[in-house]
Amino acid sequence: MKLFSFLFTSTIGRKWLMGLTGLFLISFLLVHCGVNACIFFNDGGETFNMAAEFMGTNWIIRSMEFVLFAGLLLHIFQGLYLWKFNTEARKKRYSVSAGSANSTWYSRSMGILGTLLLLFLVVHLKDFWVTSRFTDVITSGEKTLFQEMKEVFANPLPVVVYVLGCVSLLYHLLHGFQSAFQTLGINHKSYTPIIQSTGKIFSVVVSLLFAAMPVAMHLGWIQ
């Protein structure tokens, strides 16, 4: 264990854990977005319910849920710790700062964007995860996850909250995707431009797809 203690004691070790868990969470987003995008088949949720049923009952996926929460908690813990640590490294602040001259606003706001995502996550888990895992609404066949989605998004307020959540996700990913590779030590004159453009495309596509779901449901485009 001593061999890995640096992941919690040194700045680079902590950053490394941030990068690793970040990439892991990105891989989860891909799966989550893929499954949810099944609603766009517009087949009354048939394909989506099938995919959701598989995700909810397959034992490999269910075990990965624990790994996912462990990764998420680590990412949150390290993120909050580093945020505090980094803020305290400059106790006396500048009176004039010209951050926009040398960096993007979202790269300087990962802490706040992450916190917004965390708040969104609480709402989101309450809406769907708690319903499907801790009540028998879905398993008893009372309603499908698709019906649950339609019910939640019939209300305009959750739609607005979800779209704002996706905006935070977009900017968090725009910096986070390429930043994770840099932190893991992957920087190469041929590969880094590919990583950077892949990151941008991934962030925009995933955030747009996620945001389109509540909007389409609310407007009745998905039946």
Binding site: T11, I12, R14, K15, L82, F85, N86, E88, A89, R90, G99, A101, N102, S103, T104, S107, R108, M110, H175, Q178, S179, Q182, T183, G185, I186, N187, K189, T192
Partner: peptide, 25 residues
Amino acid sequence: FGACTNTGACSAECPKQIPLSVIAT
């Protein structure tokens, strides 16, 4: 000193324009 969050401000302001890739190294 704080930890790096890859904003790139350091390299942008460096008078010798040291590239960010040195942090990856």
